[in-house]
Amino acid sequence: MKKLSVAATIASLILAGAATPQAMAADEPQPVTKECPGPNQYYGDADFTKFWECSNGIAYRFDCPAGLHWDLTLLTCNYPEQANRAEGDHLHN
C-alpha cells in the first residue's frame, strides 16, 4: 500500500509541476511589439539601452545588458562610449 501512495504522490507532483510553467507563462509580461518600419532586421530605440528586432514584419523590443547601449553600426550592444549612435536613427514610438 505504501508503494502505491508514494507513486500516486510522485505522479501528482509531476502533474502539478507540468502545470506550473503554463501558469507562470500567463503571468509573464508580454513582449513590446510594433510593425517594422522598414526592411532592416534591427533598429535602435530612443532609449539607447534598448533595441528592436524585426521578424515577419513585427518588431520586438529587447534590453541591452546593464550598462550597455545599442550600437547602430555594429548592430549589437556595446559600451556607451563606443556605441555609434545618431540622433533620430531609431524606431519611432
Rank of each mutant, 00 (worst) to 15 (best):
N40R: 07
A18H: 11
G38K: 02
E81N: 04
P21M: 08
Q22T: 11
I10E: 05
T49Q: 13
D71E: 06
T73E: 15
T33E: 07
A18V: 05
K34L: 07
Q30G: 05
A46W: 01
S5G: 03
H90Q: 09
Y60E: 06
M1V: 08
M1F: 03
Y79W: 14
M1N: 11
K2Y: 03
L68Y: 07
A46S: 12
L68E: 07
A59E: 02
Q82H: 09
L74V: 00
H92S: 12
P37E: 03
P39F: 00
T9K: 09
Q82S: 13
I58H: 08
E81C: 01
K2S: 10
K2T: 08
V6C: 09
D89R: 13
A7R: 02
Y43C: 12
R61I: 03
C54E: 03
W70F: 15
C64I: 04
F62M: 12
R85Q: 12
A26D: 11
D27H: 07
P31C: 08
A86F: 12
Y43E: 09
L75N: 13
Y60T: 15
D89P: 05
Q30T: 05
P65L: 12
A86E: 15
H92N: 13
H90A: 10
L13K: 10
C36L: 06
G44M: 06
H92F: 02
T9G: 13
A66K: 14
R61W: 01
S5D: 06
G67E: 12
D47K: 07
V6R: 08
F51N: 12
G17W: 10
A46I: 02
L75V: 02
L91Q: 05
L15H: 07
W70M: 12
A18R: 11
C54T: 03
Q22N: 14
C36P: 10
A23M: 13
M24S: 06
F51L: 13
T76G: 05
C64M: 08
P21C: 10
D27F: 08
Q22A: 15
R61A: 14
T49R: 14
I14V: 15
D45I: 03
M24F: 07
Y43L: 10
G38L: 02
E81V: 01
H90R: 08
D89S: 12
H69P: 05
A16R: 10
A59Q: 03
Y43W: 05
D45A: 09
L4M: 04
L15K: 08
P80V: 01
C36H: 03
I10W: 01
D47Y: 02
V32P: 02
C54F: 01
G88S: 05
A18N: 12
E35Q: 13
P31R: 08
R85V: 11
